[in-house]
Amino acid sequence: MQINIKYIKATTLLVVALISFSFTYPAWEYNKRYNTIVKDSIIELFSTNKFLVKDYIKSDESFYVIKQKDLTLGYFVISQAPSKFHKFDYYIIYNSDAEIIKIEVLQYRENYGAEICSKKWLQKFNNISTNNYPEYNRQVDGISGATISVNSIKVDIYKSSNILKKTILAN
C-alpha cells in the first residue's frame, strides 16, 4: 500500500506537470499585478470571463491573442517604451480588427512625465487610425511637461499597431 500511494503521488505530479506543459504559459503570467490588471480589462471590455490567452507574435514585444473557443475576441501586447531615463511598461488591447480599444500604463518609473498615464488622454488613442504617422500624430495633442514620454508612447503604439496589423493580414 505504501508503494501504491507513492506511485499515485508521482503520477499525479507528472500529470499536473504535463497539463501545465500542454497549456501556453505566457510570460505575462509572471507578473501577477500586470496579469490581474490585463485580465480584468479583458473581462470588462469583452463582457466575458470565458477566454483563453495564447502567444501570438514573438518579437521584441509579446503579442497575445484573446480567444473564446475558435473565435478571436481580440489581441493585446505588453510593451515597454523609454521616458527620459527610465522605461515605462504599458499594454494595448485591440479588438479582432486590430483597432485599439484600451491602453493603460502598468508602471511609470520616471519622476517627470507621468501625465501620460492619464486615462482621458490615453482614451484618445481608441480606434485611432495608424495608417500614416503624421495624420496619427496630429490626432493626439501633446502634454506640457511630458513631451518626451508623449512622443515615446506615440511612436511605440504606432509601431505595435502596425506589427499586429501586418501579422493579421499575413495569416
Partner: peptide
C-alpha cells in the same frame, strides 16, 4: 518520476524566464 517532473518544471520556468516580457 517526482524528481524528473520537478526538474522539467524548473527547466520550463528557466526557459520561459528569457521571454521578452520577462525583461
Amino acid at each position: 518520476r517526482i524528481y524528473i517532473s520537478m526538474l522539467l518544471t524548473l527547466i520550463f520556468i528557466s526557459v520561459k524566464a528569457q521571454n521578452s516580457a520577462e525583461k
